[in-house]
Simulated assay, not measured.
Amino acid sequence: MAGRASSSRGARSASHRPPTRARPGTIGTLPDGPVPVATGTVELRRDPDDPNGVTLVLNGVPSSHLDLQDPTRLDFEYMQQMAAVVDRVAPPGEPLRVVHLGAAGCTMARYVQATRPGSHQLAIELDSTLAELVRTWFGLPRSPLLRIRTGDARAELSRLATASADVVIRDVFAGSVTPRHVTTREFTAEVARVLVPGGVYLANCADRPPLDVARSEAATVGAVFREVVAMAEPAQLRGRRYGNVVLVGTERTDLLDAPGLERAVRSLPAPTRLLRSDELRAFVGAAGARRDPPEPDASGPS
């Protein structure tokens, strides 16, 4: 099941929006109350003081937030952090090829299409019913601009062509936990295979103190990609509460060290700290990369 754990406080993201935007498609009729889907139930929660805002809640977990009229508004802090990186992958307005592992409400897909019209995107969502509903509800771009494929994120990733994406975004959850099989070095190597040379991998890692998962995931991304940063609110990085850490991996040496990214992160509505180089190594500490379990010995007794 794909979903999101978030530290959203409803802060509006405006400071990093590029000037090029496309209007959203036609919004469908939104339901009141829970709706059954293949993996449980989905509910769209509305705030009377925010008529355009919708929070998609999957099995009780806030999974996506969307502004029905403004796809560039991102309320979840980790999505604002991801957008700050995506905005710098290519010149403003230039289309990208993006793979979203975990679709839910397709918030990031809407953002990319609004800021980079003509982008070709693939969203992979485990829940086939949810995928059909969000297309109806949120006026998502149609194929080939946005294809939604149902299936397991890792299995579907393995079927994609080598060097076929500029960006891969992993936002896969089962409840509040990312399934282990999409956190390992072997999985991350598959992401690197699908990316073009210099492509960018963004992973949403939700963790709680003492951040053992986030540290091992950072070590895992660093075992595959030359350049790695971690972004999160300072309290989260100090291990004070449950929240989200965004990990970024790439072979590009000009993207993550650029002063523009540091400025963009500092200007986000919620305080955000960016860890790289020595600070990131100190954060990882002795944590090792995550690995797939060993294959069972099929040879049998001799």
Rank of each mutant, 00 (worst) to 15 (best):
150 T>F: 05
199 G>L: 02
132 E>V: 09
245 V>Q: 04
244 N>K: 08
152 D>N: 11
262 E>D: 13
280 L>N: 06
242 Y>D: 15
75 D>Y: 14
161 A>E: 14
274 L>D: 08
142 R>D: 13
123 A>Y: 06
145 L>N: 13
120 H>N: 07
12 R>E: 15
223 A>G: 09
248 V>Y: 03
4 R>F: 15
142 R>A: 15
27 I>N: 04
80 Q>G: 04
184 T>M: 14
224 V>C: 09
30 L>Q: 09
100 H>Q: 11
274 L>G: 06
263 R>I: 09
80 Q>F: 02
135 R>G: 03
127 D>N: 08
65 H>Q: 13
31 P>R: 06
105 G>V: 08
36 P>R: 03
236 Q>C: 11
21 R>S: 00
273 R>T: 15
301 P>F: 15
6 S>Y: 03
168 V>E: 06
122 L>A: 00
187 F>N: 13
253 T>W: 02
77 E>Q: 08
199 G>Q: 00
177 V>N: 11
294 P>L: 12
198 G>K: 03
21 R>W: 06
80 Q>L: 01
249 G>W: 03
53 G>D: 10
258 A>L: 04
145 L>H: 14
280 L>M: 05
24 P>Y: 03
207 D>S: 04
43 E>F: 07
106 C>P: 05
250 T>V: 08
70 D>L: 03
113 Q>M: 12
26 T>K: 11
84 A>R: 00
43 E>M: 04
57 V>S: 10
37 V>K: 04
115 T>D: 09
182 V>K: 02
91 P>F: 07
172 V>K: 02
130 L>N: 07
92 P>D: 01
218 A>C: 11
53 G>I: 01
73 R>N: 12
254 D>E: 01
163 A>N: 10
229 V>P: 06
263 R>L: 11
152 D>T: 13
73 R>M: 11
65 H>W: 09
42 V>G: 00
47 D>M: 05
